[in-house]
Design a protein around this nucleic acid. Structure first.
Length: 488
RNA sequence: GCGACGGUCGUCCAGUUUGGUCUAGGACAUCAGAUUGCCAAUCUGGUAACCCGGGUUCAAAUCCCGGCCGUCGCACCA
């Protein structure tokens, strides 16, 4: 069994995630639900993100609407020139990217902006047919990955946002004014985005509806190297890659050698690295890969993908893009609103540039699961998820050694005392060993066991998941013990 | 979206070749009871499935058609 299959099995059996609408045969692909275990873990992942990025850097968090007006996407150019031209075979229905198909067959260079009409003319000129069945092509058309929704009785056109960041751009003027913003200012948001993928695959890795945790840092483009807080991370070592070679280098040196464009970008890449290190993924299997020009999104001038190696290859967990003033300029032109702000230190009006860190939450959770998964062959192949205590769906299981002689009653009392403050789970079903195994399979780091000695001196054993070792602790000290255990 | 292969209890698998003895079987998981009492113990009992729709037939898990989903490859990933 591959690691991916092991994680899928665990996810399905233990309530991490499963397919949406699974009881119906017409359930569409690319939609997944988090079960009780998965939700707890997701919430903790997001809370860690808030701590390590949002709060650490003094960012502001907003929570926007998922449906946005047509104008937003005219301004962002999601509607218009930036959709892919496609051609479809009328016989076998195979779909091809029109511009690339023509170039491959005829060596004629076709710019992406070529109109549908011109594309059709070229297809006729070369008498191109479907490479699969030799059928005729229908006319070129545009495929847009956005989900269209109709608002109100007249079904006014609007869209489910394909990325959460547009909310941040649109809201920027108000947030900056009312929250007394100062550049550089990070605005953060976690929420759902929607893309009508052609072929969703591999559960959480390619979804049509997915969670993003995005940060847009608004900054003065003339001051990308004037960043006092850079000092905090200048020695942080980053693993940089251009796709072929790796370099391990401190943020400071990376700038000197021109591998990182400026202090602002370097600072945030370092924060990201420190964040992912705390999620427990193997940082030695991760890299910031600088994208080549032909890989970058249309809005990005400098782009790094934060990638992590898993059993199914390198996964892109975070897209880091220097978007310059592309977005604010677009929204300013379309809305006719001013997006310029005063940079307080110079008292000059500028249109801020934007550096973005767009985290794929679902992919990150999958990666954490895979990197935390262990089989312990010395103990009957027990399965252990070595999740950090602050990411574990349950922090502690409370177990009576047996469910008689008042042990279960005492255990229930302890459970009640802990459950409001910590994610606690009570279990008195079947043997104690089996219950330990069940807990460690979903990553519960601690088990409190109530035995006969507990009734005499009010102490319990606390078992550690990773070492299987136990220590006796007075019940009155449990709260403090778990508070300590949750420290990051 | 195309192609190949597949879809049976929560999970994994048997059954489909050759339609009937399948009232759909097993393992793990789970629940109840007994026994035990610190690392997946044992025994007994239980819950629980043929992806959806149509067709062929006296009879369909099994054959045919369509849809949906999954895996892989191609394409796609703004």
């Amino acid at each position: 069994m591959t690691n991916y299959e092991q994680i899928m099995k665990l996810a399905l059996e233990r309530g991490f995630y499963f397919q949406s609408c699974e009881i119906y045969a017409d359930a569409p692909a690319g939609f997944w639900e988090y079960g009780p275990t998965g939700v707890n873990m997701k919430n903790k992942f997001i809370e860690l993100w808030r701590r390590e990025l949002v709060r650490r850097d003094g960012m502001m968090e907003i929570d926007g609407s998922q449906i946005m007006s047509r104008s937003v996407f005219v301004a962002s150019r999601h509607i218009g020139n930036f959709t892919d031209p496609i051609i479809k075979c009328t016989k076998c229905n195979s779909t091809f990217r029109a511009d690339r198909y023509i170039t491959e067959r005829t060596m004629e260079k076709v710019p992406e902006q070529t109109s549908d009409e011109d594309l059709n003319t070229i297809i006729k000129k070369y008498d191109l047919h479907c490479s699969k069945c030799n059928g005729e092509f229908g006319g070129a058309s545009r495929f847009n990955m956005m989900f269209n929704v109709g608002i109100g009785p007249s079904a006014e056109e609007a869209f489910l946002r394909p990325e959460t960041c547009q909310t941040i751009f649109v809201d920027f003027p108000r947030v900056f004014k009312t929250m007394r913003g100062k550049l550089p200012l990070g605005i953060a948001q976690v929420g759902k985005s929607f893309r009508n993928e052609i072929a969703p695959r591999q559960s959480l890795l390619r979804l049509r509806e997915f969670y993003q945790a995005e940060i847009e840092v608004f900054c003065n483009p003339n001051k990308l190297n004037e960043l006092p807080k850079f000092e905090e991370i200048k020695h942080t070592v980053l693993r940089l890659s251009d796709g072929t070679s790796f370099t391990e280098i401190s943020a400071e040196e990376g700038i000197e050698k021109g591998l990182l464009p400026n202090k602002l970008v370097a600072y945030y890449l370092a924060l990201l690295k420190e964040f992912y290190e705390k999620t427990g993924i193997d940082i030695q299997r991760s890299r910031f890969r600088r994208l080549q020009d032909d890989e970058k999104a249309f809005y990005a001038s400098v782009a790094f993908d934060y990638e992590v190696e898993t059993s199914i290859g390198w996964l892109e967990l975070v897209a880091c893009n220097y978007r310059s003033d592309y977005d604010l300029k677009g929204h300013s032109a379309t809305s006719k609103q001013s997006f310029e702000v005063i940079d307080s230190s110079e008292q000059v009006k500028i249109l801020p540039h934007v550096f973005e860190m767009s985290i794929g939450v679902d992919r990150s959770l999958y990666t954490i699961l895979e990197h935390s998964y262990f089989e312990d062959y010395e103990h009957e192949n027990r399965i252990v998820l070595k999740l950090k205590p602050y990411l574990a769906p349950i922090l502690v299981g409370v177990l009576p050694l047996m469910s008689k002689d008042g042990l279960n009653k005492k255990a229930e009392e302890i459970y009640s005392d802990l459950k409001l403050e910590f994610d606690t789970f009570y279990d008195d079903s079947r043997s104690i060993g089996r219950r330990y195994r069940r807990l460690e399979e979903i990553g519960v780091p601690f088990a409190v066991t109530v035995d006969k000695i507990t009734l005499e001196d009010n102490t319990v054993t606390v078992r550690q998941r990773d070492t299987m070792e136990q220590e006796r602790i007075n019940v009155s000290k449990l709260r403090h013990f778990f508070q300590e255990a949750l420290q990051i």
